[in-house]
């Protein structure tokens, strides 16, 4: 499984004159969790649907282990669609068995898997209930079980966390982490950026059908504007204004936030701060994923 990698390579899709995806590219390796973020309509769902063969791309290629993905290899993807879909009048176990069989499992194996996953996701008591009688959160668990029960080699989940209570979020996170650690590449989209930041090894930010940022959380945060917060209680307003490449953003109660231009020396800033008196804190402020995302969205609005 060393070369288990899902590659989305320059995939484009248009609906008439509306461009949904433009040269979308990223890859997810074994044991890696990839978070897919972007505002509504940015192209996340379209990308996932194309990867699952539910939608066809205008151009570009999806590869699994270096080979273009086929109908046969797609069966090894566990998929959780954005529009949750289960038969409302079918019982939980029957439903899971049916879907796993369609993915190529024998009936006996499908039964075992259905039992295993309903137990793991805390649905044992609901096994023989019709899906429509379950709470939304439980329906969501069944949906996840449907994606996992056929022992997939890749997981593609569209908004798996939406609508879940904190306990369910923890269960879901743990399951995904376990799957990922067992060597399964996991891709999921989410609007819960704090969750993405915490869970994902790598993050891709999409805007208007294009990938605008893609890297580890650390890389992305480091790529943001270079800001420093200085706590020098005796410093007066405007103490850093004369320094080259330094722009003051705020100064409240001796706490100053400045932005350094590319190539500006933070040591010069530190010396200037010490000149004002004692310095209690000198911290590089790294943007959170939420801030990065907001920047991207703002750029989109401005564009």
């Amino acid at each position: 499984m060393s070369d288990a990698v899902l590659e989305i390579d320059r995939v484009s899709k248009s609906y008439g004159s509306v461009v949904a995806l433009q040269d979308m590219s990223f890859s997810v390796r074994a044991g890696e969790m990839f978070g897919f973020v972007g505002s509504n309509g940015a192209g996340k769902t379209t990308t996932m649907r194309i990867a699952l063969g539910v939608l066809s791309a205008d151009s570009g290629e999806i590869r699994w282990n270096g080979e273009p993905i086929t109908f046969e290899t797609r069966r090894h993807i566990g998929y959780m669609p954005e529009e949750r879909g289960l038969y409302p009048k079918m019982k939980v176990t029957e439903q899971l068995v049916y879907l796993s069989e369609l993915h190529g499992m024998t009936t006996a194996a499908a039964r075992r898997a259905a039992d295993e996953w309903t137990e793991r996701l805390g649905l044992t008591a609901r096994r023989n209930e019709e899906v429509q009688k379950l709470s939304l959160g439980n329906q969501q668990r069944v949906q996840l079980a449907a994606a996992l029960a056929h022992d997939p080699e890749v997981l593609v989940l569209d908004e798996p966390f939406s609508g879940l209570d904190p306990v369910a979020v923890d269960v879901m996170s743990q399951v995904l982490r376990d799957k990922c650690d067992s060597g399964v590449p996991v891709v999921f989209s989410s609007h819960q950026l704090d969750l993405v930041e915490r869970l994902c090894d790598r993050v891709g930010i999409v805007r208007s059908g294009q990938m605008v940022a893609n890297g580890t959380v650390e890389e992305l945060r480091a790529s943001g504007a270079n800001r420093i917060e200085v706590h020098a209680p005796l410093a007066t307003y405007g103490w850093a204004d004369q320094l080259p490449g330094v722009t003051m953003l705020s100064h409240v109660d001796g706490r100053t936030v400045v932005e350094l231009a590319d190539g500006a020396d933070d040591q010069v800033l530190l010396r200037a701060a010490l000149d004002t008196g004692p310095v209690h804190e000198f911290t590089r402020l790294r943007p959170t994923l939420t801030e990065l995302f907001r920047n991207v969205v703002t750029e989109e609005r401005a564009a």
Binding site: R74, E83, P88
Partner: peptide
């Protein structure tokens, strides 16, 4: 019920 999307990812 949108189950169609799930079905069509495994059968034609």
């Amino acid at each position: 019920s949108r189950v169609i999307e799930l079905l069509l990812s495994s059968v034609r």
